[in-house]
Write a protein that binds this DNA or RNA. Sequence first.
DNA 1: ACCTGAACACCGTTCAAGT
DNA 2: ACCTGAACACCGTTCAAGT
Lengths: 220, 220
Amino acid sequence: MPKGVKGDVKAGLGAEDVVDTALRMVERDGAEALTMRRLADELGTAVTAIYWHVGNRDALVELLVARLLEEMGDVHAKGPDHRTRVAGLVHELRQRLLARPHLIALADQRGLTPAMFQPVQAALADELAAMGVTGKEAGEVIQILQCHVVASVVLARTLERSRSHEGTDPEVWDGRVSDPALVAALATAPDLDRAFGLGLDALLDRLLPRKPERTRATRA
Amino acid sequence: MPKGVKGDVKAGLGAEDVVDTALRMVERDGAEALTMRRLADELGTAVTAIYWHVGNRDALVELLVARLLEEMGDVHAKGPDHRTRVAGLVHELRQRLLARPHLIALADQRGLTPAMFQPVQAALADELAAMGVTGKEAGEVIQILQCHVVASVVLARTLERSRSHEGTDPEVWDGRVSDPALVAALATAPDLDRAFGLGLDALLDRLLPRKPERTRATRA
DNA sequence: ACCTGAACACCGTTCAAGT
DNA sequence: ACCTGAACACCGTTCAAGT
């Protein structure tokens, strides 16, 4: 039993409370708004009290990322065959990360991106093992898939921040290309979902062992 | 005028000079070290002088990105066939971006990432047109390839910042997976070059029209 | 053990004032 | 037109001091 008894809310705030309201702030006003002084205001304490419980800002962010990560829950595979289960796991990881932009922002801020990898590793490993892919080879496959996910997620965040400069300035094209449909297409924001799905599909074709029988899953 | 100046250059500094020394600072001490006050010190002026020439910090960063981008030069295609030329262009873009981590950091800071796309767009469009891919379709292919590049580059930067937490903490694996070779592989930093190359190759297979001669298992 | 206030060393930005 | 100093509103962090 470390310290503190359950029941009474009482005077002291703990690291838990700090993380709680910090998280609330981040979700309400964005990761940039999380400042030690503002957090102190929200908590109704002096700035310096936070330092006693949490260490410093970096440590706080680390706690927030851990919390957000555990809230993401476990990802489990679904689908008839291994291939669609692996694809499902990867899509699911991406989807959950995209649903938590604060997580990404915070992790990015403190260089905790690799932590975002973890939730699916075990599930992917199981699935691959069932396909006969193990050891170093499985590790590489997992890493490549993770890179695909996180790259897509980080890119999404990066592009999100640049809503002002949408697409390419058409002026750059003067005299270089005379294909109005192309220019128009490039001026549109890229469809990241599509790019991700296409890339994933292509990667799986390369990385997963093909079934000896038939690849066309038209069987009943 | 007690303002000591060397040479017959005009006494005043211009936006050019500000950008010059700002760039020098960024290359020497990193993008984080670029601060208005430090820049003023380096220039030997008051902080506020910078504001007169450049507006504010965001505008300065924008100028820096533009400068860095134009220093990157044009990318032109090489290779015997269209496919290897396209691949070459994409690889070249990634390589040049990776060689300018400051550019990425600055662009990231100010949401100017889309600007990094531009250098290869015209070259890619030419190459695709020569393959018969034009208009909206070409635009989509270009965007997907660009996403692949920038995602890889941004991911590289993100992972670079987290050298402290290398790979996955082995503790997470307790009881979940008992494959030492896999765990070891996951603990290693991912090989981004390999991941990029693999993904690019897979993407090109999907996106580029196949030559009539090389018909594989694809039967109609 | 827990919390406070004051203080330090930074930020970006504005503005009246100087030349 | 070009540059300055002072000032404002912020940061994160430390530390001696209170309870």
